[in-house]
Simulated scan of single mutants.
Amino acid sequence: MIIVKTAEEIELMRESALIVSKTLGMLAGEVKPGVTTLQLDTLAETFIRDHGAIPGFLGLYDFPNTLCMSPNAQVVHGIPNNTPLVEGDIISIDCGALKNDFYGDHAYTFEVGEVAPEVKKLLDITKQSLYIGIREFKLGNRVGDVGYAIQKFTEDHGYGVVRELVGHGLGRKMHEDPEMPNYGKRGRGKKFVEGMVVAIEPMTNLGTHRIKQLKDGWTILTADNKPSAHFEHDVALVNGKPELLSTFKYIYDALGIVSNEEDEFRQ
């Protein structure tokens, strides 16, 4: 069942989403060769608590950390550890925060120093696919319209779209209805309604769409060990159109990136 949010609840969700956005912005300046994902995890937990929120992932389904940290061929749900990042890595950082009884859930894949051109392109296309999907999150459309748009764009570039892991509704629970696959057929699935909030999060692999899981019960890897990218935004349906609750602005400020990619999703 889709849980519709009031205008007031959407504003509370924006607070939670922006705490996550600011956390990722803080981490952007710390992602560099030599740093460990466990060090980044500690920084994130402190930052979230200092901003009046609770880490949304810590303890959720018994996950042991604040961040899901997934380098290179890891797709999602990587557990922070003491292995240092090295030049040429990429690292997907997925972060959640709980404030005012509502969750924010937001992800970005960072470059560690200079990365290979084909990997840089993977990140660029995956991030573009996120906005292509968000454009389809509008009144009158259905879940399949978002999934189809993401799938077509990424597969047209020769990438694999992960099937087993999907976006989701968001609210007082981290995972609500509807599931939001990054593949699908136009006109299929649940219909979008005013006031719903979802996390849209394409996960795109340089090679096959197939995945495997490590024995830790969490970490998801590409089946061919080629790199994977993951980007995620929290989006509300307001006045029949998608409105971003999260932002990459703080990341871009830290990295010196100028972008207007989010402008069309601000009301």
Rank of each mutant, 00 (worst) to 15 (best):
T208D: 00
G171P: 00
L245D: 12
R210W: 08
K191S: 14
G167Q: 09
L122R: 13
V238G: 06
K120F: 11
W218I: 03
V161W: 05
K249Q: 09
V235Y: 04
K215C: 00
V162I: 13
I150F: 06
G189D: 05
K241L: 00
K173F: 10
V166S: 12
E179C: 13
D234C: 14
I125K: 00
I132K: 15
V146I: 15
V146H: 03
L139P: 09
K138H: 07
E179M: 14
E201A: 15
F231I: 09
V235M: 11
N239C: 01
I251P: 10
K212C: 05
A236M: 01
V238H: 04
L123S: 13
D124T: 15
V143L: 10
V197K: 09
K152W: 10
K249E: 12
E194P: 11
N225E: 10
F153L: 14
S228N: 02
L139H: 04
F231S: 08
P202H: 08
A229V: 01
M180Y: 07
V115T: 12
Y183W: 14
R210I: 00
L244N: 05
F192V: 09
A149E: 01
V143M: 12
G147H: 04
H209G: 11
E243K: 13
D156C: 04
G167K: 11
V143E: 13
G217K: 02
P202L: 04
T247P: 06
K121N: 10
K121M: 09
V197S: 07
I251R: 04
H168M: 05
A254E: 14
K173E: 02
F231A: 12
E194D: 07
R186K: 14
K152H: 11
R186Q: 13
P181H: 13
A149C: 08
I220E: 03
L165V: 12
L139Q: 08
R188S: 15
V235E: 10
I200T: 08
P227A: 06
H209P: 06
F231Q: 07
K190E: 15
T222K: 02
I132V: 15
L214N: 08
N225C: 01
G144L: 03
